[in-house]
């Protein structure tokens, strides 16, 4: 259940020098390979005020890649990333689903610079999406009500003073207020209204956010959950959580990471086990 998956890209990270025959070839414009399943880090636009792809971004993309077969099976119509930052995640999601050509991608960020950067990153990969500056889903909430099949959120999760939240600039990308939960908790309030009946919500959290409690809050709203990826660095322990409406299918493959909720009763055990495991993690970190 708490699988730590590392998805290895089929693409080489950089062109081996021996293959670079001439300067001209070296200068060839970088074009995304048609086989690519995540955004090319060399094509991700940068801006001083915008969070660059980092461990949490990579963990989220790896979680989506690990769940890619299930997402394809879900046949999503609308995918939304809230807090798109550099655009690395939404571009990766669009690339990994590029063989399904009728999906609509939407990306929002509270930072104007971030949305501009996302726009450049998408353009560099020859991808199209609806991008807008918004506070979470302000301005589109009524239109996307009950319509989002895949919702992705890498929130500002770093614990800070509450008044540091949303002050603008790059701080918007990480300042999460008390326990890093201020923006996360606002998002949890919106999920139920925008997610489609079959929809999935992927959320990045760190231990300080108390992911076990987040799962319990969502549980009360009728959502089941599991950890897709768990990763520890010296700085923080990251989890990518996945939520879906209780009673709907979460995975097309019952053999792999089967749904936590099943009619057999195995469900509640696993659910308890998940909450227990998360609370253990929380207490472990706070010792």
């Amino acid at each position: 259940m708490d699988i730590a998956l590392d998805v290895v890209e089929g693409q080489p990270r950089a062109t081996p020098l021996s293959l670079v025959t001439t300067l001209e070839e070296y200068r060839k414009p970088l074009l995304p390979s048609p086989r690519r399943k995540s955004a090319d880090i060399r094509l991700v636009a940068r801006h001083a005020d915008v969070y660059e792809p980092c461990d949490d971004s990579f963990a989220l993309v790896d979680a989506l890649l690990a769940d890619r077969a299930n997402i394809c099976e879900l046949q999503p119509s609308v995918c939304l990333e809230v807090g798109c930052g550099s655009g690395y995640v939404v571009a990766s999601l669009a690339l990994m689903l590029s063989d399904r050509r009728n999906i609509r991608f939407i990306a929002t960020d509270i930072s104007k610079s971030a949305v501009e950067t996302t726009r450049s990153t998408l353009a560099a990969h020859n991808l199209h999406a609806d991008v807008l500056v918004a506070d979470l889903v302000s301005g589109i909430e009524s239109s996307i009500a009950g319509a989002v099949d895949v919702l992705v959120f890498n929130p500002p999760y770093v614990p800070t003073a509450d008044d540091e939240v949303g002050v603008g600039g790059i701080a918007s990308a990480w300042a999460g207020g008390d326990r890093g939960r201020v923006v996360i908790d606002r998002m949890l309030e919106v999920v139920d209204s925008i997610l489609s009946s079959k929809g999935w919500f992927y959320l990045v959290t760190v231990t300080a956010n108390n992911p076990g409690e987040i799962c319990q809050i969502m549980r009360r709203k009728g959502f089941a959950s599991r950890i897709v990826i768990q990763r520890s660095t010296e700085e923080e322990s990251l989890h990518v959580l996945k939520f879906w409406r209780d009673g709907t299918n979460e995975s097309s493959d019952p053999q792999s990471n089967g749904p936590l909720v099943s009619p057999s009763g195995r469900a509640s055990f696993l659910q308890r086990s998940l909450s227990h495991r998360l609370s253990c993690l929380v207490s472990f970190k706070s010792v």
């Binding site: 949305v115 726009r119 807008l132 500056v133 506070d135 302000s138």
Partner: peptide, 13 residues
Amino acid sequence: RFPVSKGIPNMLL
């Protein structure tokens, strides 16, 4: 009025 700049609508209130 919600400004549109560089092709991006700004829906912040």
